[in-house]
Nucleic acid binder design. Structure first.
Lengths: 320, 320
DNA sequence: TCATCCGAGGAACATATGTTCCAGTGCATG
DNA sequence: CATGCACTGGAACATATGTTCCTCGGATGA
């Protein structure tokens, strides 16, 4: 199993063939060799189809969600921060991206919690992309709303890509904020927010049943920096202003208070009040470096449900 | 993967340990050896836990249900018999029990279709047991109702065991028909059906949202015979009366008409009218030998949704 | 206390799996 | 028509997995 490509490319496999191969392999328990002979393929081809099916989420592996590997931490966090539900997954091995595993847990949770005709809001980042891959495939009924403006370059963390992946997995219709994540100026931002297409989407936020939020940290590990979502200058400036990260475009300090900063004036996203009016806010983020922004998000009232990993969970409980 | 034990024994594994092992193995993609080292277990132990987790349904593998390996057959059956939905799975290799694979498909379908507080009625047989193992685990909310009286000896096809397995997987409350499948006499049957506990259950049938029915055939392959659910004499006598099998205690001829026969007077189960009043009847049965009773069930109005395998599907389409 | 039984660990092995390297083939492009 | 390019098949190999057989230690019961 590969780890790097959080959102696999558009490597399409013929669903009917893939379904048959996977059925024989996973459900009947035949070997790849047997499957190959039965269908007249080479073993290599069967092997490739199976790998791809796993990588793209065509085939999913689900662990009984009623039992957690870290039940103790979950209970402590729930009590400590007054959360409705907490899922803590084991900290991954060093060479594995924590976003993949936390995203997997988030995808599974959303699959279980999302009603057949619910509307879900999502943000951006690798965790959200990984969640999309772990959504149980379904047909029709749902609506996906992207809560924040897009980035210009496509990629595994872009809001547009994430929203599209979500919608595709759910067979949902999708609404995008047709504006950049950061406008060039506060004036342009205001103009865009008032413009018809953006206003219409943001007005939809109050109809959202549930939102899956991720946390963007501003530590030196920040993937936003790596992927160029924000510039190094902006990063420094935000840190100097006491910002520990952002959640759905809300830039927060360590106590969870919104910080006043030029960039905040340029963000195109749902505002704090709109977010807080959503019935269930699910915050999914893991890794020790995310602990400060997770804490800030909880304090800001942006998390009813927390999905994280052991490392972040321990930091959250310790650093008091 | 083993095939014989349709309903695995009560081999309990510590859910917390199992969750952790399976998480590392399936979600992080580490090898069993690595997992063992990380947790201080032997590789053998990790291997055992993983095998058990798969066998008991603690870990489940799901194939995107929007695509079927046998889409063509599904479309034909749907049109030919006017069904709402048809799922056809590939015919299993000769050494694999068809009930396991059809049951797997049935479990997946039910998991997807069952609302969070729905009541589901079920019957008995290996297919139902296999379905129970493939239900997505959830908590609370549902109610399972057994639609037919029980067998005295516990086992993978017994209505009680099946209902209990279903309820356990769903975290559901369960209602049993506290009476045998066959009363000793028509008089005793009538008395039992009028008795409080049985009457109360059967009255519940009209509150059932959905029922998962299996088909019991009377061919020489009949598992009912193998497991001793019916005697060889009864089997012969039913066949001579033109019975091709039964669905939820309804003994039908090849045209789907209820057959008059002494045993029918002794069956303790929901009656035909009650069954037909259920909003969605899902009939799950596979194997060429089941084709006659499946057809009879459809003709009798006992299937809105059909889940079967290629072999039965082809028989159903051919034999006209 | 001792014999016995059961379950877990260890070693070893036969398979199954995933990957790499290379060659051929068909398709698109210049 | 020639040239690559991308993909598939084949062979070979290094790992990973599942299983068997044996041993050990601890619990059970006479």
């Amino acid at each position: 199993m590969d780890v790097m490509p959080i959102a696999a490319g558009a490597d399409e496999l013929d669903p009917e063939i893939a379904a048959r191969v996977c059925w024989h392999y996973f459900k009947e328990g035949q070997t790849q060799e047997e499957v190959a002979q039965r269908l007249g393929f080479t073993r290599k081809r069967v092997n490739r189809i199976i790998s791809q099916a796993l990588a793209t989420g065509f085939v999913q592996i689900t662990i009984d969600s009623r039992y957690g590997a870290c039940a103790e931490l979950e209970a402590q966090l729930k009590a400590r921060f007054g959360l409705r539900l907490v899922k803590v997954v084991p900290a991954p091995a060093p060479d594995i991206d924590v976003r993949t595993v936390v995203g997997a847990a988030a995808g599974q949770y959303i699959s279980e919690a999302l009603g057949p005709s619910d509307t879900i809001g999502i943000t951006w980042g690798g965790t959200i992309g990984a969640a999309a891959q772990n959504l149980r495939r379904r047909t029709g009924g749902n609506t996906v709303v992207s809560l924040i403006g897009g980035l210009a370059t496509s990629g595994p963390i872009n809001p547009y890509d994430n929203a599209a992946a979500f919608a595709r997995a759910l067979g949902a219709t999708c609404r995008y904020v047709t504006a950049p994540m950061f406008a060039d100026s506060p004036q342009l931002r205001d103009a865009l927010i008032r413009s018809t297409p953006v206003r219409e989407i943001l007005d939809q936020v109050r109809f959202i049943d549930r939102a899956l939020l991720s946390a963007i940290d501003l530590t030196s590990h920040s993937k936003a920096l790596v992927y160029g979502a924000i510039s190094a200058d902006t990063w420094r400036s935000l840190r100097n202003a006491g910002v520990v990260g952002d959640i759905a475009g809300q830039y927060l300090d360590a106590k969870g208070r919104p910080v006043s900063h030029p960039i905040v004036e340029r963000v195109i996203a749902a505002d704090l009040e709109q977010l807080r009016s959503i019935g269930e806010l699910v915050l999914a983020a893991g890794g020790a470096h995310k602990a400060p922004i997770i804490r800030a998000g909880i304090l800001a009232g942006l998390a009813h449900v927390l999905i994280t990993d052991e490392a972040a969970a321990q930091m959250l409980l310790e650093a008091d």
